[in-house]
Amino acid sequence: MQRDTSSWLEDLHAEGVQQANALDDLREVLMRILPKALSRWLESSDPHFDALIEDIAQETMLRVLERLDTFKGNSKFTTWVYTIAVRIGLSKLRLKKWQEVSLDSLKSGPNSDSSPFMQFSAPTNNPEVSVERANALALVMTAIEQELTPYQRAVMSAVVLEGIPMDVIAQRLGKDRNTLYKVIHDARLKIKHFLERSGHPPQELLALFNRRDQQMES
C-alpha cells in the first residue's frame, strides 16, 4: 500500500487513468483486508466466499466514491474505507444468515395479554435468592407490559432478548437502523424510569444478580 491519505484523495478525485489506477489499488487492498476483517462471520470455506468478498469490495468502492467529499480527515483514509466496508459486509452477511427465519411476530406485535418471560430457565438453587430474582423479573416484565407499546415490546424483545440483528429487523419492516435504535432507546428509558419510580432502580436489580453470583461462587 503505497499511498497516504492525501494521495488517495488526490487520485480518487482525479479522472481517467489516475482515478482508475487508484480504484484498482483500493480494490486490491479491500480484497486482502476483508477476508481477515470478516473472518469471524464468513469462513473461507463458504461456497460463496469469493463472490461475497468481491461483491462487498465493489459496493464499498462505489460508496466511497459517492461519499468522498464527506471524508473529514479525522482518521487515515483507509480506516474510513474499512468502516464503510465492514458495515456493508456485515449487513449483507446478517441478511443472508437470517433470510430463512420468519419474523411475522414483529409485524403484528406480540399478543397484548402475553407475558413473554415470566420465569428463569435455570434458576439458582438458593430459595431466598431465587425469590428475589423472580420478583425482579416480574417487576421488569410489568414495566414492559405497562409502559411499552406493542411495537416497542416486539422490537425490544427481538433485538435485546432474542439477539436478532437490527439490520435484519430494519429490512423486514422497511425501516432504517437509526429508527430502530431510537425505538429501543425510548423503550429502555421508559423501563428505567418505571423502575426508578417504583423504588427499585436498575442498579439495585443488577447488584442483586452480581452480588449473589459472587457469593455463590466464593
Partner: peptide, 26 residues
C-alpha cells in the same frame, strides 16, 4: 411463558443501568 436465562436478563438490566437520556444514532 417462555423462560429466560438469568445471565441474559442480567445483561438486559445492565443495559438499563447504562441507558442515558441522550444517546447518538448508529
Amino acid at each position: 411463558p417462555q423462560p429466560i436465562h438469568e445471565k441474559k436478563f442480567a445483561s438486559m438490566i445492565e443495559m438499563l443501568v447504562k441507558t442515558e437520556a441522550h444517546e447518538i444514532s448508529c
